[in-house]
């Protein structure tokens, strides 16, 4: 399984803060997971934003980052703390 989490504006647009999904070999990187989520429909197109940030196991990474069973993945808009 992989744990997927959504934050801030994405969380609101998607109406959920996260979900557990079964990992399969096709989900070999974060972008493969993102493309699968985009295929769900209109609300999910926020994940197509070019400014999207992502993290694997709580570390910022690129969409090319490999994905493994048991990983925690997060998608979120640019951060605005401070």
């Amino acid at each position: 399984m992989i744990e997927v989490r959504y934050f801030a504006r994405y969380r609101e647009a998607l109406g959920c803060d996260g979900e557990s999904l079964p990992w399969t070999v096709e989900l070999d990187c974060l972008d493969a997971l993102r493309r699968r989520l985009l295929a769900r429909g209109a609300a999910w197109q926020v994940l197509a934003e070019t400014s999207l940030l992502c993290a694997r196991n709580q570390e910022l990474c690129s969409l090319a980052e490999p994905l493994r069973d048991g990983d925690e993945v997060a998608f979120f808009p640019p951060v605005t703390g401070g």
């Binding site: 801030a8 993290a55 951060v79 605005t80 703390g81 401070g82």
Partner: peptide, 8 residues
């Protein structure tokens, strides 16, 4: 912090 810490 402003560009890498996950706050919104």
């Amino acid at each position: 912090l402003k560009t890498r810490a996950p706050f919104w």
